[in-house]
Structures are given as C-alpha cells and as structure tokens.
Design a protein around this nucleic acid. Sequence first.
DNA 1: CTGAAAGCGCTTACAG
DNA 2: CTGAAAGCGCTTACAG
Lengths: 340, 340
Amino acid sequence: MAAVTSLDVARLAQVSQSAVSRAFTPGASVSEVTRAKVEDAARKLGYRPNAIARSLITRRSRMIAVVMSYLDNQFYPVVLEKISQRLQRDGYHVLLFIADTREVDSVLSEILQYQVDGLVLASTALSSALALRCSDAGIPVVLFNRTIRDNHTCSSVTSDNYEGGRLVARHLVDTGHERIAYIAGMEDSSTNLDRERGFRDSLAEHGRRCFARAVGNYDFEQAKAAARHMFAGPAPQRPDAVFVANDHMAIAVMDALRMELGLRIPLDVSVVGFDNVRQAAWGSYQLTSVEQDADAMIEATARMLLDQIDGAVQSSAVVLPARLVVRGSTLRRNSLKESA
Amino acid sequence: MAAVTSLDVARLAQVSQSAVSRAFTPGASVSEVTRAKVEDAARKLGYRPNAIARSLITRRSRMIAVVMSYLDNQFYPVVLEKISQRLQRDGYHVLLFIADTREVDSVLSEILQYQVDGLVLASTALSSALALRCSDAGIPVVLFNRTIRDNHTCSSVTSDNYEGGRLVARHLVDTGHERIAYIAGMEDSSTNLDRERGFRDSLAEHGRRCFARAVGNYDFEQAKAAARHMFAGPAPQRPDAVFVANDHMAIAVMDALRMELGLRIPLDVSVVGFDNVRQAAWGSYQLTSVEQDADAMIEATARMLLDQIDGAVQSSAVVLPARLVVRGSTLRRNSLKESA
DNA sequence: CTGAAAGCGCTTACAG
DNA sequence: CTGAAAGCGCTTACAG
C-alpha cells in the first residue's frame, strides 16, 4: 500500500537517492558498502523499483505486445505459452492483445500508447496494416506464422509452408490416391496461399489436378460444412483423400466424415492436416500432418525481436523446414490394390 | 520514432500543454474550440498520449497481471482469450505470466514492479503465496478456478466443484454402474479436493464406496499411466466407470483405455470428465462432463476485480452452478441389463 | 565512488 | 475555460 520509493530507502540507508538507484542497476558503480546498506534498507522496507518510472526515463518498457486473434486452434496457445516463457527469460513481458479483424484500429492505438518495445503479430486473420503502422512508428515487428506481401520493414518467421504443401501432395500421390481434394483456410492468408500453391504445384508435377476444393476459413464449423458438401456424392464422385489447411479444421473434417457421413478413415478417405498440434496425435485421430517446429519458430522470433530492439536495423524473413508426420489417417491405397 | 509529445502538440495548436492533456482526458473541462485545435494538431503529428507517463502520475497502469501455469488444458486458453477481451472492453490490458511452481518468487517480484492494478491467478498448481503477497501489497487479487484455505484477503471465482462431483456420482449410480473409480488431479489443489469430496460424499449417501483411485496430477501422460494401471486386471476386477478430475485427463484416459487396453467406451467402461472443454464434444470422444460456465466465471472475475480496483474493500467468494452434460461416454447399464 | 540536479511525459490542484 | 507549476519515481550525465 505504502508505495515505498527509492527516496525512502535512501533515507533509511543514509545515502543519496542516486545511490539507491545505482544499487539496483546492474553494472552501475557502487561500492560494496553502499550496496549492502541499500539492500539492507530495501529489504526492511520491502522496496521494489517502480518499472513504470524506469520505463519513462529509459524509454524501454520491456514489454512486448503479442497479438493473436483466437486461441481455439491449439497451435496458438502453445506458441503463446512458449513465447511468454522465452521472453520472460530475457526480462521481457508479454502484453497480450486478442484482436478481431474489426478492432485493429483500437488495438493499434493501445499498442502505441503503451510504448511496447516490440510486437509479435501471430494472427493469420489480422490486417497487415497493424504491423506496418507499428513498424512505421519505429517499433520492431516480427510476423509469426505469416508474412505480408511487398514488405520490407517487418521481419517474419514461418515454416516452409510451400514445401509443406508439396510434401502432402507427394505423399498422397505416392500412396496411390486418385481423387485428391483441398480444404482451404482463409483464402488470402499467407499460410493458406503458400500451402495451397505448394500442394497444387506438386500435384501438377505428378500430372495431377486438385479433384475438389472448398473453403473452411480456418474455422471448425465451416470446415465441417465444407466437408459435408464436398463428400455428399457417392464413392466414385467423392475424393479419396483430402488435404486440410490446418489440423484444427482437419479434426472437424474427420468428425464430420465419420459421424455424419459414416465414412471410414483412412479406408474410405485419407485426411492430412497441417501444424501437427498435440491433438493430431490423439488416439482417435492419428492425423497425418505437416509439423511446424514451434520451438524453433519461437526461438527465431525472440532472437530477431531482441536483436532489433538492441539496434539491429536489418529486418529479415526466416523460413524453417517443415516435415511430414505420417500417421494412421492416411492409407497406402496402392499396396491395398496389390493385395486385393 | 520521433516520439511526439503533448508539448509538440501544444506548440502546433498554440495552446498550453495542460490544454492538450485535458483534450485527451474524458470529462475534463475544455472548450470545443480548444479541443478542435488540439485534435487537429494531434492528428497532424500522429500524437498518442504516453500511457507510461500517465500511469506514473495517476498511479493506475490499467494493466492486469494474469498468471497461468500451462495452456495445455484447453480450458485455460479459452479463459485467457475471453478474459483478455473482457478487460480490453473496460480499457484494461493483460500482462501475461506463465509461471512454473519454481518461479513464483521472480514472477511475484515482476508483478510488483510493474504496478499492475490487479491480479488474476488462474493456476491450480501455483503456490498461494503469490496471491497472498500481492494482496498484502495492496493489489486486488481474484483467484480463478481455485481457492485458498483460510483466506480472507483474496476474492475467488469457482464453479460449484463439490456439487459437480456429486452430480457425477449420482449419474453413475443412477445409470447402474457397480465399480466406480476416480482419477484425481493434483491431490491438494482446491478443485481436486472439492470434486473428490462431492463425489465421495454422494457415493456414500448411495451406500457406495469408491472402487479404485489413482492420481493423474492434471497431466496427460500421468493420466494415461494411471488408467493403464487401474484397468490392468480382468473385467470383474476393474472399474465399470471412472470419473476423471478434468477433461484434459479424461481424454488421455479414453485414449489409453481404447488404444492400449482395447476397451470399448462406454460398453466396457463409462468415462466422465470435468470442465466441458470443446474437445469433450468432439465426435470421437463424446465425453460426459461437468460444465463450468466459463463466461459467467469470467464476468464475475472481471466485475470483482474492477470493483476492487475502484475501491470496494470487500473481497468475496463467488461460486457458480455447475451442470452435468451427458454424452455418449457413459452408458445406462441398468437398462442394458433389463433388455438382456 | 558519490550526490545534487535535470528531466522522461504526463495529470491535476491552483489561481485567474 | 485556461495556463503555469508541481510532482509521479525513477536514471544518468556532471562535477567533485
């Protein structure tokens, strides 16, 4: 309650207020005697430096704004947890913003007012204006799991989404699938564009085309609806494999296929997702998925952000390798035929 | 970059710095003419008040520390998302702390330094010292989904965990289960204690006892291990129903029972969880669960916290009703017998 | 190593 | 309604 200040400590320790400040500043020049007196007095009074006052004078808040749009997709909570721990390790703190597309302006304004030292934008959905305007205001920005077209000011960290899409196509072709479909995320998000392009390019190289396509907008219910529609027809008219743009939707698709349409996975249809979230490994799903290495992505994000805060001018785009994790949701249809 | 201040705006607008400040303070007395001049100049310069400086003088940071220990259990990310949005609505911001049991001291210190206006402690695992010491320092604290024994300073918001436990016992007895087991969360957490007590009390009232008990510590893998051990024996020696202290563990238990032990749910064994997280409704699980009304819990949390920040001295304990959501993971064994 | 002093960018009595 | 001034709690040249 009492709000103990450095002046209170100074008085008790019989030193100047500057001395108290120095005693709490790593690397400042204080004699051992002074330091001891200060620490003693501080302990007695329960003093802790006021980070707000410090921020005002140092122009460093040691706060990083992390902007996400929804934590439904399990990929994001895990990222949030890890990034928060990673930044805490370096003495930074996460100021969290959950932002809808509609609220970009007010969030932008709040971020700017709070003098954050950096910004991590981890939301596929959100307008790029937010990132660009923070960057213009001199705040280091890292785009996490997304990019912005024609951007030279914001750094970004992504997996190789294009290559991930290719891996999926190749896997499905190699395992003998004939009618390979795609369920998209948000159509103009960078993740969706890259994954879909890689997927289509690889299909084309194998002399194949995408058999059917629907849009799920990275939403659980929309993905179910897309699946219902896509698989409405009889066997020869429906896909025998579907690549869903992320695991969150892929699980919804699996539920719809099994529970509503009575299809067997992978016997009637193979399903592949993207992200390799924890649930993909759950017993009932065993979802084949492209793994994003969250730890590596977070480490790269933290490093770039901290470097830029410490004055590195260069912004850059880090692309980390993606790898396919094959599980029970995809079948080898060719070996099936052989044995038939 | 340029860090536009109120003084810059004042100069351009030809008014005093105080006038600029007033123009940005809702309810302050400024003439329309002055306000217009200020807004004009501010827009031209891209001025935004510095929240840090404001905090220093008003002694209100408008930041709320939210402390969680892991976001693995889907209940928590959803809570975090909603509480963040709820607080943003009132102009508050979430400073997020992910804390392990080990890091309590450093987290405490950081929270205190950042002059947060309030604290939400939403972690079953974390030591109560954190909450009590913040409370001692004059920071309003709300315990979310947990309580602290013999506590008169921190408010708390929980569901009626005791009644929830009772509902589960009654349901399992009513539906004709004979050997009803329990898999505990962290044994000394308030949620676990209350749920287990309610469960046991109700069993006792029906003249029954808990058939078997194991501990999962709210951990996915530990829950699996507990299930493996509990269900190792042949049919008459193993439970025909198990209440698992939360959904996160219950799903792990279902996976272990089905995939590793080859048991059918609910035919061989019924499973009940707690929280009613989204995954409980997923097609492959259809988990019967006790619903915690997250929206009501969050609303109560925000309201209590804001009231206390605004000077309400009273701390209080809100307990919200819990209700059982019956799904396919529990069977009516009695009707089964009748029809047999 | 140490202290006095200026100043970070605001809000808010105070006097007019 | 308006401006000059004090002050929130720190850090950091500056001089000794």
